[in-house]
Nucleic acid binder design. Structure first.
Length: 326
DNA sequence: ACTATTTCCTGGATGC
DNA sequence: TGCATCCAGGAAATAG
């Protein structure tokens, strides 16, 4: 279940491997789509774009895209592969059309050199856009070779000029793909690793909701999920059910430090591999071995040996030590 | 304006 | 072995 450290690990791996590559063609799976934007919008923005870099914002992977603002020839309905996929496809997807959009554009408008910013297409084309990927619970974004087996639940295949492919695989379909045309993706909330203490304190001030729920609220802090919320609360000595408003300033300071500490340690270990999480290179993280409460219901607290408890808060299982956390 | 609950989705675990 | 049921959870939608 990718949270901030897992997404950070994936984004770093992708950044290293695909920055500078050019997207030649895009295949998107069937509806009901795992998509926020429409398949058409996604394909239009991606195809012909150069990957300027990959980074993390909250739990989102942001792929920054650049393109030559060339006039774009209309595509015929027949040439569009999007939406043609059928449920549970098992064969290789159709190969990319021999002429990519970018090539067609350059051929049609050779005077538009690399780096040109002007477009004749009435504001329809931006030089900066973004591909936004949210992995949900079980999503993966993998760099593959074309001959690699296409995994079940592959919902998108992005073919790169280098010959490799970026594949989005998501069995549970909680993941989302979308694009922006202005390069201005906004996630809301503050980055937990960047937020300052006074801001952090204000975020929770006066809230009646349990502190666990507040930590999971992406409009406050972005990137903290169930595992790291529980681990942070344990390190701070705060029970997950405590109302945010009832937490003292000193305890909030401890929580502030704990959140950063847990996330930084997890990033250093490549994230937590629970169930099937792997990074862009297929490597597992190691932070699951450092979990002190998450997934340890009934096991002894590592500090005081008291059996750990699990309760459900706002539909999320929450693990804590009844003695160490008040 | 907040907060709480429901919904989406499928594989794996559990129970009979 | 097989079949039904439950559970995991991020975030949007809905309800209170």
């Amino acid at each position: 279940m990718p949270e901030l450290p897992e997404v950070e690990t994936i984004a770093r791996g992708l950044h290293k491997r695909v920055t500078g590559d050019v997207i030649e063609s895009v295949w998107l799976g069937r509806k009901p789509e795992p998509l926020k934007s429409t398949a058409l919008e996604i394909a239009r923005v991606l195809e012909g774009s150069r990957i300027g870099g990959v980074r993390r914002v909250g739990k989102h992977i942001v792929v920054d895209l650049e393109r030559n603002p060339v006039a774009r020839p209309p595509r015929s309905a027949k040439s569009r592969k999007t939406g043609l996929a059928r449920r549970g496809f098992k064969t290789r997807p159709a190969p990319p059309s021999p002429t990519t959009l970018a090539e067609a554009g350059r051929a049609a408008r050779p005077e538009l050199a690399e780096g040109s910013i002007r477009s004749t297409a009435a504001g329809a084309i931006q030089s900066k856009s973004q591909w936004i990927v949210h992995l949900g619970m079980t999503g993966r974004l993998l760099v593959c070779e074309p001959q690699d087996e296409v995994l079940k639940h592959t919902h998108a295949i992005v073919q790169l000029a280098s010959g490799r492919e970026l594949r989005f695989v998501d069995p549970r379909r909680f993941g989302r793909l979308s694009v922006t045309r202005d390069g201005k993706f906004e996630a809301g909330g503050f980055e937990p690793l960047e937020v300052e203490l006074d801001r952090f304190t204000v975020l929770f001030h006066g809230r009646k909701t349990p502190i666990k729920s507040a930590l999971l609220n992406q409009k406050l802090l972005r990137g903290v999920g169930n595992i790291y919320a529980d681990e942070s609360l344990f390190r701070a000595g705060i029970r997950p059910r405590r109302r945010a408003a009832s937490i003292t300033h000193e305890q909030l300071r401890r929580l502030f430090l704990s959140v950063k500490e847990v996330l930084q340690e997890a990033i250093a270990l490549g994230g937590s591999s629970i169930s099937d999480y792997v990074d862009a290179a297929g490597e597992e993280g190691a932070f699951q071995l450092q979990h002190r409460v998450y997934g340890r219901e009934g096991e002894p607290c590592l500090v005081c040996k008291t059996p750990l408890r699990r309760v459900v808060i706002a539909g999320r299982s929450s693990h804590y030590c009844p003695k160490c956390q008040k």
